[in-house]
Amino acid sequence: MTGKTARQCSSWVLHYLLAINLAMMAGCSGKNSTARYSASMGSSCYAKALPTSGEGGLAWGDTLKMARQKSMNNCIRYAGRSGGTPDTCQVVLAECRN
């Protein structure tokens, strides 16, 4: 009887995991994932801005100036959302890769 119960339980668990996996894949299939990363793959410069408290922002851009501006905008937005200090955002890293 124990063997039969264990098989029923493992069968139920496998079906449950399969259903969750399919639901997660279905939820992501409608999103255009390449659109989110296309800017970072084509851009060669990046910058990171951080506030004194809260979350900062990382951004990619075609030029160093564009990457800095985007990262500052992201820092201000994310610091405000996370309860930080948006007015203290500063670019702490900015580079272009070759």
Rank of each mutant, 00 (worst) to 15 (best):
Q90K: 14
G3E: 11
A94N: 05
L17A: 12
N98M: 14
G30Q: 08
A26G: 07
K48C: 07
K31T: 02
S33V: 04
L18A: 10
T85P: 08
K31V: 10
Y16L: 13
M66F: 03
G42Q: 05
C75E: 07
A6I: 09
E95I: 06
G42S: 00
G83H: 03
G3D: 12
C9I: 15
A19D: 03
S38G: 12
G84C: 04
V13F: 13
R36H: 09
G61D: 03
Q90R: 14
S43D: 01
S82W: 05
S82F: 04
G57D: 04
L22H: 05
S44L: 13
Y78E: 04
C28Y: 09
M41C: 08
S38A: 15
T34N: 08
L64T: 00
K65W: 00
G27E: 06
M72V: 13
W60Y: 06
Q69E: 06
E55M: 15
E55T: 13
G56A: 05
T52P: 08
R68E: 03
I20A: 12
C28Q: 05
V13S: 02
N32K: 10
S53M: 05
W12C: 09
Y46M: 07
L18S: 05
G3R: 14
N74W: 12
A59V: 02
Q8V: 07
W60P: 00
A39S: 14
L14M: 14
L18Y: 01
S43L: 06
T52H: 06
L93M: 14
K65M: 03
K31I: 10
T85F: 10
V13M: 11
A49L: 13
L22T: 06
A94P: 01
L17G: 11
H15Y: 07
A35L: 14
G80Y: 01
M24R: 10
G30E: 04
T2D: 11
S11D: 02
C75R: 13
G42M: 00
V92W: 15
T88Y: 03
L17Y: 06
Y16Q: 08
T34R: 11
A94L: 01
H15R: 13
W60F: 11
A39P: 15
G3T: 03
H15F: 11
A6E: 01
S38H: 13
V92T: 15
N73K: 12
R81P: 05
N98I: 11
N32M: 09
L14F: 13
T63S: 13
S71E: 04
L14Y: 10
R81T: 04
Q8W: 14
M72L: 15
